[in-house]
Design a protein around this nucleic acid. Structure first.
Lengths: 205, 205
DNA sequence: ATCGATTTGCACAGCGCTGTGCAACGGCGT
DNA sequence: ACGCCGTTGCACAGCGCTGTGCAAATCGAT
């Protein structure tokens, strides 16, 4: 058991991975899910989870780190080498959509003051990038909103969450949802609906 | 103490009212705030709260009932006798804005599976009205969105939350925020930005 | 079959929260 | 000054969760 923290057997690794995956799903369902709920959902006993993570916070922290990394990558990949802010936002949304569940967890956890304040800090860089992009769009007149860029970023974020929830409730198929989300985010930013749909349609080749 | 639940002394009533008000604020800050936190924030001992409400759920339930009533009233008042869906939505948003904090609590609690599932039920009627209004706007071509009406309702809701949070973070003054929220909701629904700003400006006389 | 790594089962102490009982204390009107 | 009603302080049992210790069982590979 001592080497579980350092050494790497395939068995232990697989379990650790599965615990993390299940924990993501479980925390998505209930942000205050207990270690026992997570363990049982992973087909494992509570004591085993403590073999892989010293405490609850460490588990969540690992999850958050992975999510932030994925989000950051998606966000960056979406907007690199793109001049048009609208297109950058659209690409970014489509990219983030691929890791929607992890994004959702981040937002859900960031809202709870209890869970962690460190999340906001770890999330800050990618949020700032988002704000910069929106501000550029606002300045160039591509976007149009009475809201300042940081506030628009909140709208951007919550819009994604809203569409996510719609998919969750079966109101939308997962396939069309990504494009819908992109179009909605753009129109919320003040891009004419026709222009937004056309742009997003073009991105899917 | 027995008559605290039935009889009405001014003292007890004032306390009860203050407990409810403080509980609203406290639960807004942390949806899982303990009875002790709420009591102390209200300048009262925990035992006293149990004198007014038999248990935690009863307290929250009262809060929810009040909030649903206020929301329902605001929502109805906003759209009665208005033919244009866009104007109805705008008026509704402005009306809801007056009870923003209670609305926020409702949404926050509705998201937690733990707290109550009854909230969704009590919230369902007003949500359905919202969906109907959005659907009418979609059908009449006033709104334009790739999203079906129920999904658009989610976007509507989360957009309000986003602007609320922006105000909370000092990115917006409370005065301008209402109109900003209305404009943003409309543009998210596909109403051209210029038309949305003009309409909302007109509503403030 | 055996060894080492891993998981399990159980027991435990500790913490914070809920809800209740009860006696004492407070203000306020008469 | 008295009585009423609300409030307080304290004590208590119960619950669920966390994190840890330890011995037994189990799995995988040699």
């Amino acid at each position: 058991m001592a080497s579980m923290t350092t050494g790497n057997t395939s068995r232990a690794d697989a379990n650790r991975r599965r615990i993390l995956d299940v924990a993501l799903a479980e925390l998505l369902r209930d942000p205050d899910a207990s270690m026992d709920q997570i363990a049982r959902a992973a087909g494992v006993v509570r004591r085993t989870v403590y073999g892989h993570f010293p405490n609850r916070e460490a588990l969540i922290s690992t999850l958050v780190d992975e999510a932030v990394a994925a989000l950051s990558a998606a966000h960056t990949a979406g907007r690199e080498g793109v001049r048009d802010p609208a297109e950058a936002v659209a690409r970014s949304v489509l990219a983030v959509w691929e890791i929607a569940d992890r994004y959702r967890l981040l937002v859900a956890l960031a809202q709870r003051t209890v869970t962690m304040q460190g999340i906001r800090e770890r999330l800050a860089p990618v949020r700032e990038e988002s704000v910069r992009l929106l501000r550029r769009g606002l300045d160039e007149g591509v976007f149009s909103s009475p809201l300042p860029a940081p506030a628009l970023a909140y709208v951007h974020e919550q819009t994604l969450i809203a569409v996510l929830e719609a998919v969750n409730d079966g109101l939308l198929t997962a396939r069309e949802a990504g494009r819908c989300a992109a179009v909605t985010v753009l129109t919320a930013a003040g891009v004419p609906a026709s222009m937004a749909t056309e742009l997003v349609a073009k991105l899917n080749d």
